[in-house]
Every structure is written in C-alpha cells, then in structure tokens.
Design a protein around this nucleic acid. Sequence first.
RNA 1: GGGUUGUUAGCUCAGCUGGCUAGAGCGUCUCGUUUACACCGAGAAGGUCGGGGGUUCGAGUCCCUCACAACCCACCA
Length: 871
Amino acid sequence: MTFSKSYEPGEFESDIYAAWEASGIFDPKLTTRPVDSDGDGVDDRQGENDTFSIVMPPPNANGNLHIGHGLTVALEDSLTRYYRLRGLSSWYIPGADHAGFETWVVYERELEKKGHSRFEFDRDELYARVWDFVAEQRGNMELQLRALGASCSWEDLTFTLDENVIDRVYTTFEKMWNDGLIYRGEKLVNFCPKHQTAFADIEVEHEDESGTLWDIAYVYEGGEVIVSTTRPETLFGDVAVAVNPEDERYKKLVGKTVKLPLTDREIPIITDEHADPEYGTGAVKITPAHDFDDFEVGERHQLERIRVIAEDGTMINVPEAYFGLNTKECRKKVLKDLKDQGLLRGEKKITHSVAHCYKCGTVLEPTLKEQWFIDVERLAKAAIEHLENGEIKFHPENKRKVLINYLKGLKDWNISRQIPWGIAIPMFRKIDDTATDEPDWVFDRRTHLQVIEKAGVKYQRDEDTFDTWFSSAHWPIVCTNWTEENFNPYYPLNVMETGADILFAWVARMIMMGLYVTGEVPFKEVYLHGLVLDEHGKKMSKSKGNVINPMDLVTRFGSDAFRLGILRGRSAGMNQAFSENSVIAGRNLCNKLWNISRLIQSIIDTEEDIPSASDTLNMGEDWICRELNNCLEQVELAMSNYRFAEAIEVLYQTIWDKYADWFLESQKIYRNVPLLKQTLETILIALHPFAPFVTEAIWQNLSWTDGYIATADWPSRLEYDPISTEQFENIRIIVSEVRTTLQALPGTNNAKKYSLLYDNDSLINDNQLLIRSLTKVPTINSLNGAPRGLRLALANHELYLDVPENIVKEYKDNLTERILSVGRELDNLNLRMSNPNYLSKAPEHLVKETTEQIREKEALIARLKAELEII
RNA sequence: GGGUUGUUAGCUCAGCUGGCUAGAGCGUCUCGUUUACACCGAGAAGGUCGGGGGUUCGAGUCCCUCACAACCCACCA
C-alpha cells in the first residue's frame, strides 16, 4: 500500500468506522471471555477488576448533535479506547433519550406547522405519532456519533422508552409506593400555560425583569392597611393580610379583619415572619393558591386556597365582571376599578426575577395541582452519606461539596408531567364511588389500558407521564442490565461523564436511585465537563447566531482533528471557549503523523530489515526510547487523573518535537528498521484514544501490522542506554547552538557558507555526519590546534564556525548582548547563594544545583568575554 | 444575600503536592524549497502571571484583601 502526500480524513473515516463496527470489537461480550465460563453461576472474574464501563448520556433522539455532544464523545471515547488498549474489557454503552418535554416541544411545533393542534388527538394516539417521529429522527444522531468515532457497542443501545427501561422504572415506582415514598399532593407547581405542563423547580429559568409594585388600600372599620403587590389580579384569591410579628406599626391591627377590595369578603390580618417590615408598607396580601411563599404562609396558618386563575390562564372564582378574562386583561381592569374607587394609592417601578418556561420563555404561573411527589428525605440522606464517605470521586473535586449542599436542601420531587410523550405513570384512580372501602389509587403496570378492573372495582389511568429525570435516574442500572439476581461486573460504572450543568438534575438523582435500587453507588467516579463557549467566551445560542456545528468541523478538518482540538486546553468543570485554531493544530498533527509513517514505510520498503530485534545502535535511538518511555508515563498519569489536555499536549510534543524533529532526522543517517517499526507503533497506539481514525488508517496502511490498532496492546517500556542518551542530549545542544549562531550572523543562507571546526573532541569527531545533517553546514573539520573563526558558547566543547574576521566583527553586538543576558542570570543565582537562609533552609540538592549553575554561567561568560576580546 | 469558578504572551489556554531562567497552539517577524510533510523546516520577538498586603530562604503556585468577569442557589409582596 502507498501513502499519499497528505492525510485526507474524508477518504478513510467512514470505511474505518464501518470495519470496526462489523468486526464487533466494540462489543465486550464478543471480544472477551464469558463472565461465567464454567457455568457455576459465579462470575469468574470477580475481583479481577478487568472491566471498564461507561454510559453515554443519551442525546435527544429528536435531532442533531451539538458541540457539547462532540465534547462528551471525545472525552468518553478517549477513555474507552484508552482502557481498551490497556486490556480491560471495555463497554461504552450508547443511548438515545426520548427527552420527554424537549421532544414534545419539537413535535408540537411540527404539528403546528402542519396546521394541527395536540388537542385534536387523544393521548395514546399522540404517543404513537411521536414515536414514529422520533424513530425517523434517531438515525441522524446515531450516524453523527459514528462520525465522531464513538467506539460504543451499538447492539446495546438503550432508548429511554425501551421495554426494560419502563419495566425497571415501574419496579422502582412500585417499591417506592410500597415504601411510602410516593404521595399525591396538592401543591403549587410551576405551570407553563402554553405547554400546559408542570415543571420541576430545577427546570425553571429565572430572569430579572422590570415590573410595577402597586400599593392598594384594604379597608377596615376606622382605617385601612396599604399592601404592596406586583400582581393585583390575584387579589381575589387573597385569604389574609400578613404583617411581621415584630412590626410595631401594625400590632394593634392584628386579629382585625379587612374588606377585600372589589368584593365583599372579609379577610383577617395575621402575623408571619414572611412579611418584611422593610419592604413596601410592611403589610403583604396572602394568596396561597398563586404564590409559593404565600402557599407556605397558608400552610402555617391553615388558610384556604382559592384558585382564581385556571390552567388556561383565565380568571375563575371571581366576581362576574372579571370572570373569563385572561390575567393581563384582568390586571388592567382591577387597576382601573381600584383607581375609580380610590383604593389605588401608588405605584413604583421595581426589578424582580420572574420564572420562565426554559423552552418557550412564557411566564410560568404558579398553579395548584394534584401531582405525584417523591418524599426525597430518605433518598437524599443516603446519597449524602455515601458522598461524605468519599465513595465517589469527583472531577473537579469541588463539585462533590456542591452536590452535598444541594442534597441537603432538596425539596420533594414532583414527578408528574402533563405531556403525552413519556412513560405513563402506573397509577389508576378509582372511578367507582360506591366501593368506599377500596383505596382511591392503585398501582398497576398495565398502562396500555385506560381503564382497569380490580376485584370488581373500576379504575382509570392517571393521564400524566413521568418527569424524564425519574427514568434517566436509572440510566447506569438499565444500560448495564443490572438485575437483583446476578452479579454484574459492569456495575457500578467506572466513570460517569456528563455536563456540569446537570449535576443536580441528573447526577444527584442517579446516585439516589442507584442506592435505592441496587444498594450501591452507580459509579465510582464522576467527570463533569463545562460548557463549550464560542470563540470569544460567550455562551452559544441560536438567537446569537454563534452556534458551532461539530459535524461541520468534522467535515472540514476530520474527526480526529475535532477531537484533539476540543480536548486541548480544556479542564474538568470549566466553561471554556472553543478554538478553531486548536482543531487546526489537531489536523496538522494528524498530517504530521501520516507523513512520519510515510517516511518510515518508505525506509522500510528500501532498507533491509536487520532481524536483530530492536536493539539500539546509536545515541538517537537510546534517546528516543527514553523520551517515549517518559511520554507513556505522563500519558498514563494524565489519563488516570482525567487530564485529557495534558495527555494530548505530551503526545503532541513527543511526536512532533522529539520523534519527528530529532529522532527521525537522525534516522536519515543511521537506520534501525526494527526500532523504527516499534517506536512508530508506540506513538500510534498512544495517540489512538484521541485520534482513532488517522492512527487506524496508518495502521491499516503499514506493511507489517496486523489486526486493528483499536484492539492493539498498550506499548510496553523500551530499553535504552542512559549514557548514550546523555550524549545525544549533548549533540542536540551543540546543534541548536550552531543553528542559533548561524541565523544570528549577518547575511542569509549562512548554514551553507560556513563550516564547523572542532578540536580534539571525540563526540564531534564520531558524529560528523549526524551533526552535518542536522545543521546543514557543508563540512566539519579538525582545527589541528589552530583556532580561527567564531567560537561557540558551549561548555565542554571547543567548536568554531569558520567565519571571516569582518563578519565576526559585525557579530560583536550580538555577543555583547549575550554576555549581559548571561550576566543577569548569574547575578540572580549569586543573590540566592548570598542569602544565608537559603543555604541553611533550602534542600541540599537545590543548593548544589545552584552552585553548579553558577559555575557554568561563570565559565560561559569567561569564554564569551575572551571571544569578544579576540574580535 | 449565600456559594462556586476564573483573571498568565495579540488570541485560546497549560502550569497538579511552592524551587520558573513562566510554557503550548494559533497569530506575528526573519531565513529556508536538501527526495516524509508548506497541514513543512530552522530561528526570533512577545509576559513586572488583575491590584495591594502577608507567610516563606524562595510565591504564577499558599493566606488575607480589593477590583473585574462568569456561573449556580436563595429572596424579591
């Protein structure tokens, strides 16, 4: 096979992925021995710790991947591939999320486009329609995951509405129901009037908005109380006026009643801490059915809850004149009427934060609703215990504390959603009023039925579906097929990788659910990535038009370049800007690697393969072995600490600056075919987790490699001679000095003009060819004891560039500058040594090091000065 | 109001337990087409590490404080 002049990712990527997939290497069930090979029901590998498992946070089945998914796949797949190379049975389980509400919004928009409305269909019909819609869309997302190189086991793809998921969710729900953790309660929930569904607290977006604070007089016999409100239209739902118990101004009034404006109703004046004497007039109206704080005040004082706004946003339970108005119209009319009656006493502009639907931006209406809730106290407590034990390691570490904090203040979890697209809540309400002994609600898995009969009593299914997070909380359990009966070597997961933004919504719930269902934490480590911001560090959003499409970058630069680019310079938990330049750097590295391989293959095609294993024959070979060993060690350390960017950085430097620029250049003089093969394999395998395609493309193109690099063995350490390695370091210093000096000399093309002179130096003498090749000087000659030209500033080597005297003179300024600079460094060192505390308190090896450095600098300055004098 | 994180070269970022003469990529400048690569090679310029104080023989790194930025939570009648 031949290597073309440059690496063109588009020519290889899809074929390579298809080959991997067909070979089954991503499915650990196919590539590893069975968990129980002797059939005794016990896992043979227990305790061997030779598995690696990770699940994909399921992308929404309804659309395309965004840049965050790109980052997720780059991180997760690098880990998976790395551990696969390290020999672990590695299982990367892909998924797709029905994404209840998200998908619902997309689908409803589709419906609207076609001139339909959700209300034309019943719930089961809608469910079927969305199912088809999602099935159609899902292929896109899966293709894109392949394009990103995700080495996941497609056989095991889990969809959040798969039967086993629903089964598991129902089992958990039943257990919770029996354990008394589930209750039906009437509570205030955040309700989106447009989408007609409730949200969990965590899904609500608060935004600061300007609003108006109105002062309204509530009259009593012989006086009035002024209350302040931003929502005058809710006054019909008022059941009290609250003042602070410490507020002297109102002490006399407590216990009196006032007349609710625009009505004939009398409401009491009560005391409650909630009333802040500093705010407004210090008196506040209490509307338990439409305000979260008031709801709590109402609970404390057993106040009635009067609903005055229906779910469709119109007024109910209000005087005739206001009935049926929407809230906006009603507010207008209330204000006008209050003004007419002289009860409106003032208004001022304020800024306050308002809850919005995170999808459509509609202002959420706090609404009284009967919903299913989970009593989270027990679950949260268990989670906190295990977190405090340090059973789960977090990256970044501080998120553990943040999570514990969150769990400590966690409120009961509303799991009912009023959208058809989701897992039906398996609860049925009694519709037979005569059966008074039977419970009002029963659990039953037959949610495909609208009505069921139990012991002659009829029950109707609750129409609501589960909050997506309730089922997602089971993700590690369902993806690994965990069961009560069998030991599962893939559970708990080795690591849960996901976005820091869903630490609370998802990670917290997986931990609670994992502990509740399996008794174990669901994963041993958590890696949280931050947001990928745009090139200027701003959040990406469609409205800003700064969204970067990962597929676009894959097309332009290749999948590997994208992966390398997005991982570069990124650390756990940080929101960081995306930099196309990093992708370009990644692309360049791929091309470099390609050409490295091209050179080596061409050498091998022409050179005889000396079959003496891979012994090192000259210094450059020893040196690269040491460098590769260092590289492997650093990559291994970085990976075990989830420092992806560092691993990539090390590989980049090693491959480019060391392997290509020094080792391969030296191999143009001395050729060691077995070592070339072995070292090339080493760098290819080490880079493979991050750049799977190019490394595989090369592997398949090389004449001597077998199988897939994706399942190769992680390279072992290479042997080298340390003395020879140090000599090569010497050569590198010499070569660099020659290059720098040549470029600093006046004129161009100096390398070709001046030859190198040495005196009595075996290192130079023995390596003339190599030095000539690296510096490009035409010849290297012995001085024979008669120095001339320009002496190079090198310790332990007497080397001259054969430069005419007039040129040397021009170089003088340069030399003076150099002496000054070294002098400054020397001053610093001397300063350090003149400090008696440094000598007594600093570690001995440092003092010794400093002493040596001083000696070297002094020698260098002496030499440079001597040189200057000669000139 | 509470919390978390960040502020290092023109840009995007490394710098983990204090030893740094502060690094990388991209960009800039100079030179270079020698049969792996111009998606290249060689070299260079560019930083009082946000400000101030402290601990230490020694601080980009630890502590305090201020400023700015981002995010999260709570409150907002």
